[in-house]
Design a protein around this nucleic acid. Structure first.
Lengths: 189, 189
DNA sequence: TGTACATCAGTGAACGCGCGTTCACTGATGTAC
DNA sequence: TGTACATCAGTGAACGCGCGTTCACTGATGTAC
């Protein structure tokens, strides 16, 4: 054969990875298949040798994003002050400007709720994050705060991206971040 | 003249109002001008007698949304327990399913940050809400919580809309809501 | 060893569709003479 | 009073464009005989 045995599988994965990044960065609707394939040095015609439809790709890209999130959390939540560190990471300028896509939740919140053929992957991402938050919070008996913390993280990032004024945007990130970090340590006072 | 003197101005306002609702409910990209005009009993050709471009309409619809928000807050924040009531309203099932569009922030967070020709209207909406929150919070010396409260509201609604499982969605609304209401009363304990 | 054939990842032209936008036109009205 | 004209909100066909999707094809490879 002209190609290595896993060549097609590798191409498949390259498409999923690039799509995952673009969906998170630009949204699903704003990501065209033609530019996506072109960015990988392929032509758009080959797309349907890999995926049943764009929706099929969305589903696989979401799964990839979930794996991504799991990779990050398994890193961060192995350490001390894990949640505090995660909050710093999540509400950073780099995260807001997310050239790499970042968390799928703030970007795709609208489109995820509107998909015709919904999947449980979004729920899995939410539940996975809550589960990670639970552990460090439970040490202080604060596990009931997992969900409010996640809400504030997602909302803070979404707002920081919406704001046009750079100073306001930073204030949103900073104030939300510092509040949350204080909040998760409160019972230790 | 065939039409009343303010006929065109009225049509203009009808378009802005309908667009404002659709942009908030479906997003800007997912709202077509043709279906929008048809829903008002008009043909799409007439659109450009009222607006320079779709972007022009977006700007006017955002202004309309700001006025809308101001109307609601001037109602709610005149009363007792205003912020608590606002939180109940914001994180309700009706608000989540928002047939009327609801708050522009959770729906449009992505698109607002990506517009080519950005405007200050989003910032005005954010600042207006923060200002409203400040007053009742300041009574308890909690005005520093305005921003985290807004983040959690926006994020909670966005997450509740993203979740596929109805039970999870309700849990997001309920937990975030109860947490915030407890939080804004904390210093009175 | 050499020719004929099967495989198959990827190619690129073409499809119908809805988008935002343009524009010549309609038709009911008020105005001029 | 009656005809000719100007006004102007709204009409609807048409434009180019990018979208998701389809499909006949290419061309380098391994296999059969």
């Amino acid at each position: 054969m002209r190609y290595a045995l896993d060549h097609k599988a590798q191409t498949h994965q390259r498409i999923v990875k690039e799509a995952s990044m673009r969906f998170r960065r630009d949204g699903i609707g704003a990501t065209g298949l033609q530019p996506l394939m072109k960015a990988l040095g392929l032509t758009h015609g080959g797309f349907y040798a890999h995926f049943k439809s764009k929706d099929d790709l969305v589903e696989q890209a979401l799964s990839h994003a979930l794996d991504n999130v799991k990779g990050i959390t398994s890193d961060v939540f192995a350490r001390q002050d894990s949640l505090s560190e995660f909050i710093d990471l999540y509400l950073s300028i780099a995260s807001r400007d997310a050239e790499d896509g970042g968390c799928p939740l703030p970007t795709m919140c609208l489109e995820l709720g509107q998909r015709d053929q919904p999947s449980m992957t979004t729920d899995k991402i939410i539940l996975h994050l809550l589960e990670q938050f639970d552990k460090p919070l439970a040490e202080n008996g604060l596990e009931s705060k997992s969900l409010p913390v996640l809400s504030a993280l997602v909302g803070g990032l979404a707002l920081a991206r919406s704001a046009f004024d750079e100073e306001l945007s930073q204030r949103i990130l900073d104030t939300t971040r510092e509040y949350l970090k204080k909040e998760i340590k409160k019972s230790t006072n």
